[in-house]
């Protein structure tokens, strides 16, 4: 604790210079790896002690698309992502409604149990999932990989959606009833518009998870279900850094777009609950 105190005290004394230095280094610390990847993906003949690549080229992207079969891989990723999103959102809506709006004994305990997969390293249950999927012949199928992703996505969907449904003001629903709306109209005009943002958020979270998911995919994928992270990993193993970088750029762009899209709407602390790119 004294170490921490001295550290903070030191920072405090020179706070302005240090503050800006810290912010600048942070930016560099976070952004530099991406710059390196981006440059590597368009550089040619970049060896030795050079700050920037001497020649620019798009060849590596062509290679990535042709040899790395990126369009096919992208298709796999999107199909698997779509299945995972649909399944986890359905699970999330049902369970979220139960947790958020219905009375039940032992609600907290049940919730903790269902959210348990978040507390355990994915690799530990990924083993069992893979073993089961081998016997069920679900390995290397879209459904199988997507279901493996659901084990990661669904807890977040449940979490986000129970919070959404819990936030629905009972009095507002009553007001709609008093105004003359029957159950169906109440749902269409009041409930749906109010929960739609939550459902969308949960879908985006689920999709990002599925899109980034590596551990479970690695244990359940096959030649027909290579996803983008797997493809990138395989390329790293092959040692072609330039092509790997090109693939990485292709893969990162959608993630950053999603971040830019949601950053104004969602609170960062909600994102922490929502994302986990392992």
């Amino acid at each position: 604790m004294t170490l921490m105190k001295a550290y903070l005290r030191g920072l405090w004394e020179g706070k302005f210079i240090l503050g800006y230095t810290l912010l600048l280094s942070l930016t560099l610390f976070i952004a530099a790896p991406f710059l390196m990847i981006a440059l590597r993906s368009v550089g040619k003949g970049w060896f030795g002690r050079l700050w920037l690549p001497p020649q620019l080229t798009l060849d590596w992207y062509r290679w990535a698309v042709e040899v790395g079969n990126i369009p096919e891989v992208m298709k796999n990723t999107l199909i698997i992502g779509a299945i995972a999103v649909i399944v986890s959102t359905v699970i999330g809506i049902f369970a979220g409604w139960a947790f958020g709006r219905r009375q039940m004994p032992g609600k907290e305990v049940l919730m903790a149990i269902i959210l348990l997969p978040r507390m355990i390293p994915p690799i530990t249950y990924a083993l069992g999932v893979a073993k089961i999927f081998y016997t069920l012949e679900l390995v290397d199928t879209y459904l199988g990989v997507a279901m493996a992703h659901v084990s990661v996505c669904a807890p977040y969907a449940i979490l986000v959606l129970s919070a959404t449904f819990e936030g629905l003001d009972e009095r507002v629903l009553e007001a709609a009833g008093v105004c003359g709306a029957n159950t169906i109209k109440r749902f269409i005009y009041v409930v749906l518009p109010l929960i739609l943002p939550g459902i969308l958020a949960s879908m985006i979270f689920s999709f990002t998870h599925s899109y980034n998911e590596f551990t479970l995919t690695l244990l359940t994928y096959g030649p027909n279900t290579v996803t983008l992270p797997i493809r990138t990993y395989l390329a790293v193993g092959d040692g072609y850094w330039e092509i790997t970088s090109a693939m990485a750029v292709i893969m990162v762009v959608p993630s950053l777009l999603i971040l830019a899209m949601i950053q104004r709407r969602a609170k960062p602390e909600k994102l922490v609950g929502g994302f986990k790119g392992v």
């Binding site: 003001d169 009095r171 507002v172 009553e174 007001a175 709609a176 009833g177 008093v178 105004c179 003359g180 709306a181 029957n182 109209k185 109440r186 009041v190 518009p193 109010l194």
Partner: peptide, 20 residues
Amino acid sequence: LPTHQRELGMVFQSFALFPH
């Protein structure tokens, strides 16, 4: 009779306006 068929008007303590 269900609520919506009772032809009532009501003002709520928490206002209960439709936020959207």
